[in-house]
């Protein structure tokens, strides 16, 4: 058996032992997400427009992650709509900033990997960079939206008569609680993924000026920042949708 299958099998068993049915769903969502991502790569390589492919993949991935991960229906739906809305707003943030920073493709640090490769590609790699940035935020958006909608659903469950403005305040409070640890997840996730690059910088004695203008470093840091923007935006949006839904429900009951 090769290493990937062995690790995958261990993960599957652990997930099912710990989470039962839900654990199995979590594993499925990981598997489907991989499928969606790989499919997106293939479509872009077949010259489908990267941004369109990314948007469609993004919505599918958010749906898979939220609906396979969530439990209670009403709050799960809110989480999906909120995360999809954040995805759209993020695209409007990411496209102009990536256009400004211009971090497409590969940097001088990649030249070893590019040897013997044809770089006649005919695909706009600036758009590929935007697609990469958008896709890398998806998990974080979905997680934040689920955490906040679940937190608010719990509050509504325990205090069904809570006023709408207090519910709004509670959403912000839940958000403030999760933001610190979520930022940590993002920080370590990204920097763990690019440890080798930083070691390279230190080993080759890049100056601070070189680092903060380096294509790969800026591309990477922008991805962390976009994910952070996504998580922050998720907090008020999810809270707002949740309050809207509650207001509608109360009106109907009266």
């Amino acid at each position: 058996m090769d290493t990937i299958s062995a690790l995958g099998l261990i993960l599957l068993i652990a997930m099912v032992l710990v989470g039962g049915q839900q654990g199995f769903q979590a594993f499925l969502s990981l598997l489907f997400n991989f499928g969606a991502l790989f499919f997106a790569v293939v479509l872009i390589a077949f010259h489908f427009p990267p941004l369109v492919v990314t948007l469609i993949t993004g919505v599918i991935v958010l749906a898979l992650t939220v609906f396979l991960g969530g439990k209670d229906n009403a709050s799960t739906q809110i989480a999906f709509f909120a995360s999809a809305a954040v995805l759209l707003i993020l695209v409007l943030v990411i496209v102009p900033i990536e256009h400004w920073a211009v971090v497409p493709g590969f940097g001088p640090e990649d030249s070893d990997d590019l040897e013997q490769m044809s770089l006649v590609l005919g695909i706009n790699f600036l758009e590929v960079a935007m697609a990469t940035a958008i896709l890398s935020t998806l998990g974080a958006i979905a997680e934040a939206a689920m955490a906040i909608s679940a937190g608010l659903a719990e509050i509504l469950d325990q205090h069904p008569k809570i006023t709408l403005s207090r519910l709004r305040g509670a959403g912000l409070k839940v958000g403030t609680q999760i933001i610190g640890t979520t930022f940590n997840t993002l920080f370590f996730g990204f920097f763990g993924g690019f440890l080798a690059l930083f070691i390279w910088f230190a080993g080759v004695h890049y100056s601070l000026g070189q680092i903060i203008n380096d294509k790969i470093f800026v591309a990477e840091l922008l991805m962390v920042l976009f994910s952070m923007v996504g998580v922050i935006l998720t907090i008020p949006l999810t809270t707002w949708l949740m309050t809207m839904q509650e207001a509608k429900k109360r009106k109907m009951n009266n």
Partner: peptide, 30 residues
């Protein structure tokens, strides 16, 4: 834990794997 572990694994998955997109497209085009 069962509720939060799935979304968390996905957060890291997208961070680790989305990064590889440009290189994967380059390989496919070659």
């Amino acid at each position: 834990g069962g509720e939060i572990m799935g979304p968390l694994v996905n957060v890291l998955f997208f961070i680790f794997v989305a990064d590889t997109l440009p290189m994967a497209i380059l390989f496919l085009k070659n």
